[in-house]
Simulated scan of single mutants.
Amino acid sequence: MIIKAVYEDNVLKPLEKLDLPEKTEVRITIKGSFSKLLDELGELEAKVDIDKVLEDMRIRNYYE
């Protein structure tokens, strides 16, 4: 399951309702290195050429 969440008051808050029982333990992976890219591009559509996106990433400095 992939969801979007906001970090607020030291808590991750999902932007949508999760179909999970209370107190379910989950594993969360935060991939901050692509945050600038995702902010710039937004949601990618299937028609986007991923090779072009990766080439643009290599040129720009997304790995600070």
Rank of each mutant, 00 (worst) to 15 (best):
43 E>H: 10
25 E>P: 04
21 P>N: 09
6 V>L: 07
36 K>E: 14
51 D>C: 01
42 G>R: 13
44 L>E: 07
58 R>E: 11
25 E>W: 08
58 R>N: 06
24 T>S: 11
23 K>S: 03
45 E>V: 04
2 I>M: 09
48 V>T: 13
34 F>N: 09
40 E>Y: 12
23 K>I: 00
8 E>R: 15
51 D>G: 04
34 F>M: 12
48 V>E: 14
12 L>R: 06
36 K>W: 08
20 L>Q: 08
2 I>F: 08
22 E>F: 06
52 K>S: 06
45 E>W: 05
62 Y>N: 04
5 A>D: 00
53 V>F: 12
52 K>G: 01
11 V>G: 00
22 E>D: 07
9 D>T: 00
32 G>C: 09
54 L>G: 00
56 D>W: 07
13 K>C: 01
15 L>R: 10
49 D>V: 03
49 D>Y: 05
31 K>A: 02
63 Y>M: 09
18 L>H: 08
29 T>Q: 14
35 S>Y: 11
6 V>Y: 05
6 V>S: 09
42 G>D: 08
6 V>W: 05
39 D>M: 13
59 I>W: 02
29 T>I: 15
61 N>I: 01
48 V>I: 14
5 A>K: 02
15 L>S: 03
40 E>I: 05
59 I>Q: 11
6 V>A: 06
20 L>N: 08
23 K>H: 10
5 A>R: 06
34 F>E: 11
61 N>A: 02
13 K>S: 01
2 I>R: 12
5 A>G: 00
47 K>G: 01
28 I>F: 07
37 L>V: 05
11 V>Y: 06
60 R>W: 02
54 L>P: 01
7 Y>E: 01
25 E>Q: 14
19 D>I: 08
7 Y>I: 00
41 L>E: 07
51 D>H: 07
48 V>S: 09
38 L>D: 08
46 A>F: 14
20 L>D: 08
33 S>P: 04
43 E>I: 10
16 E>M: 10
8 E>T: 09
62 Y>F: 15
32 G>L: 14
49 D>Q: 06
57 M>Y: 09
42 G>T: 11
51 D>L: 08
37 L>Y: 13
24 T>I: 02
20 L>F: 15
57 M>C: 15
9 D>C: 01
35 S>V: 15
58 R>H: 04
51 D>Y: 06
23 K>V: 01
19 D>M: 12
24 T>L: 02
12 L>A: 08
27 R>W: 05
60 R>L: 04
40 E>V: 03
36 K>I: 07
12 L>P: 06
21 P>Q: 12
16 E>G: 01
37 L>I: 05
10 N>A: 12
44 L>D: 02
7 Y>T: 00
30 I>Y: 08
12 L>F: 15
64 E>L: 10
18 L>D: 09
59 I>C: 01
31 K>P: 00
31 K>C: 03
38 L>T: 07
11 V>R: 15
44 L>C: 05
